[in-house]
């Protein structure tokens, strides 16, 4: 039995909720982006115009936050299933957490160019 102190929502029901809500956000973002790329002539102007719009930056940031939460729940489940020893599991989870944090800050930098 793995201690639940490392899971995001601190309970399975919360984790389930987080996983579903972020799944809807990510599915919408993915479908939108596929739709845009397939229906628009992609060049620098059209591409940067999309990311110049505030609503799309917010949508992208929402997707990035969703990736972080969604991946945490998913990778937590996978690591607790396959890595039984506490220290290696903790290290892998810490690495995943660090990667998510880097993704988030990097993404904000790309979107708003600090």
């Amino acid at each position: 039995m793995v201690n639940s102190v490392t899971n995001l929502g601190r309970s399975g029901v919360f984790d389930w909720m987080i996983q579903r809500v972020t799944a809807y956000v990510l599915a919408l973002y993915t479908v939108f982006l596929f739709g845009f790329v397939l229906t628009t002539d992609i060049n620098y102007d059209s591409w940067s115009a999309l990311f110049d719009q505030t609503w799309f930056r917010i949508f992208t940031l929402l997707a990035l936050l969703s990736i972080g939460a969604h991946a945490w729940v998913g990778l937590w489940t996978v690591t607790t299933d396959y890595i039984k020893a506490t220290l290696p599991r903790f290290l892998v989870q810490a690495l995943c957490g660090l990667a998510m944090f880097v993704y988030l800050v990097w993404g904000i930098q790309i979107l708003w160019g600090l």
């Binding site: 940067s48 990736i67 991946a71 995943c96 993704y103």
Partner: peptide, 29 residues
């Protein structure tokens, strides 16, 4: 599960591509 892990790693590639593509005409090309 496997595809989820691949995507998680792939986000780094996607962010790199996004950053370069938005850095200007030169980066996009």
């Amino acid at each position: 599960r496997v595809s989820g892990i691949i995507i998680f790693v792939g986000v780094a590639f996607m962010l790199y591509g996004l950053q370069l593509s938005l850095s200007g005409e030169e980066g996009f090309s």
